[in-house]
Design a binder for these strands. Structure first.
Length: 480
RNA sequence: GUCCCCGUCGUCUAGCCGGCCUAGGACAUCGCCCUUUCACGGCGGUAACACGGGUUCAAAUCCCGUCGGGGACGCCA
């Protein structure tokens, strides 16, 4: 068990395309990516599609889309296990010849019956090694005669297998707990344990970073490495992500597919930052204040397996929303624009995009108040299109008074006569009008805000007016 | 059931080779200030070492047990 060559770091993300990229998988991918980028290693993407019946091309596409959305790129692959079956067969042959594996003729039904029996007695079932004693020649003869059989690994019956995990430390398993697991199904397809180990060896993976749900499988895989006399990778199991009730994250806790978060108006960088901090806390340099907002380079520079937590983490939507707010506020308008354009498309609004600079100025004005990308297509719609709805509650509160409406129309007329339309001039004209009619300026300000934006909440009113421009401001005031 | 892992504010966590912890930060929450709305911002508050035994002058920190949660026990991955 020699240490991997530090100059040849290679990790992999190996999802199974039986579902979309979910948040747990995304975080595993992220940690692998962060680790590879930190150490200058390579990230391999490998699709584990040996369960043909449950895998689909659509899911593969969904996973790739999810990774790209998160900004996780890979250096090799995607490789598909289904195209590497020869490798698994040759390795299983080798295991068979060296006596580390044997053919098993027990049928699924027999196995199921025995499991059922054990359950009834309250015993744990473990394959009893029924076929282990069949001499190889006899087994081969039966197989050649057409008898259906699987191939099992002949697991050591005594001693212990110790996992040296980069996050969990030393974890020991008694070998007698481990049954002779299946390597090859009776249809010749490899099982997970065989294919991962074959690929991880063949692809020269140095660090296996994966979910903690695989920790108890690790001794089985280590046994295969040992039987093959192959160098052991470093294992690093990362704790799981839980729902708010501390049970495993599932649909009933909300979205589990990462693409759902794009659809919910989350900025990918924000999602990635949030995910990274779920189970990982970077070491703060002495005296440094703990910071939680990290852009790519900083996150990569700080990443380390040692700082990964051993306890499971609850997915906290409120904190994700906070990250989203922070990112929207901090990002340059030009970077936000493409994301916002997707929101417009989804909301079927078509702003005039010929004036990019003007658009960016408006986005800069609004972004401090946004909490979600949807805001740019919903509550801020009035800034980008004339087809916006007026919030009924806001209208009721600030535009119900006919006197106010009349004054707003008059304000529109005064604005129309202004040569220079800037914040100072717009404000002065409004305050003058209020004074002329002995009404509080606030009443006109609140009313104008609703008339101009359709909302009771918006940026500073006079900045809004300038952003909309004189022509639109006047038109909306006159129409009140 | 068996094996493995985990257990600090509601949440993510710092601390955990014992004293510097009257347990720190962030999110959330509450209050005040700022203010043309809302947000931001500023200031302040509420809030945790699962429980029980040890060891020790001293335990969140070490040991044991209990309880709780999670994972694994498939010809799924």
């Amino acid at each position: 068990m020699s240490a991997p060559d530090p100059n040849n770091i290679k990790v992999r993300f190996a999802p199974s395309p039986t579902g979309y990229l979910h948040v747990g998988g995304a975080r595993t991918a992220l940690f692998n990516w962060l680790f590879a980028r930190r150490l200058g290693g390579a990230l391999v993407l490998r699709i584990e599609d040996t369960d043909v019946a449950r895998s689909s091309d659509e899911m593969v596409e969904g996973i790739l889309t999810g990774l790209r959305w998160l900004g996780i790129d890979w250096d090799e692959g995607p490789f598909f296990q289904n195209q590497r079956l020869d490798l698994y067969r040759s390795v299983s042959d080798k295991l068979l010849r060296s006596g580390h594996a044997y053919y098993c003729f027990c049928t699924k039904d027999e196995l199921e019956a025995r499991r059922e029996l054990a359950r009834g007695d309250g015993r744990q079932y473990k394959y009893e090694g029924t076929c282990r004693g069949i001499v190889p020649g006899e087994a081969l003869r039966r197989k050649d005669a057409g008898e259906s059989c699987a191939m099992r690994f002949a697991a050591p019956q005594d001693g212990t297998t110790r996992v040296e995990d980069a996050v969990f430390g030393q974890v020991e398993f008694a070998n007698m707990e481990i049954e002779d697991f299946v390597l090859l199904r009776s249809d010749g397809q490899p099982t997970y344990h065989l294919s991962v180990v074959c690929d991880d060896i063949d692809m020269a993976i140095t660090h296996v970073i994966r979910g903690a749900d695989h920790l108890s499988n690790t001794p089985k895989q280590m046994m295969i490495y040992q039987a093959l006399a192959a160098p052991m990778p470093v294992f690093a199991h990362v704790p799981l992500i839980l729902g708010t009730d501390k049970s495993r994250l599932s649909k009933r806790h909300g979205a589990t597919s990462v693409m759902a978060y794009r659809d919910e108006g989350i900025v990918p960088q924000a999602f990635r930052n949030f995910l990274a901090l779920l189970g990982w806390t970077p070491k703060a340099s002495p005296g440094e204040k703990a910071v939680e907002i990290f852009r790519d380079q900083e996150m990569i520079a700080k990443f380390s397996l040692e700082d990964i937590s051993r306890s499971n983490a609850v997915f906290d939507r409120a904190k994700l929303d906070w990250f989203n707010t922070e990112y929207i506020r901090a990002m340059p308008a030009a970077e936000l624009l493409p994301l916002i354009e997707q929101e417009w498309a989804a909301a079927r609004i078509q702003p005039d995009t010929s004036d990019r600079n003007g658009l960016c100025t408006t986005i800069d004005l609004l972004k401090a108040r946004a909490r979600n990308l949807h805001d740019f297509a919903v509550s801020f719609a009035a800034f980008f299109t004339d087809e916006f709805a007026i919030d009924p509650a806001a209208r009721e509160k600030f535009l119900a008074d006919e006197k106010v409406r009349g004054l707003l129309r008059e304000l529109g007329q005064r604005y129309a006569g202004l040569r220079e339309f800037d914040e100072g001039g717009a404000e002065a004209a409004l305050r003058q009008l209020a004074a002329d009619h002995d009404i509080k300026a606030g009443a006109l300000i609140n009313g104008a805000r609703v008339a101009l934006t359709g909302q009771a909440v918006a940026p500073s009113l006079f900045a809004v007016m300038v952003s909309l421009g004189k022509e639109r401001t006047v038109r909306r005031l006159l129409a009140v």
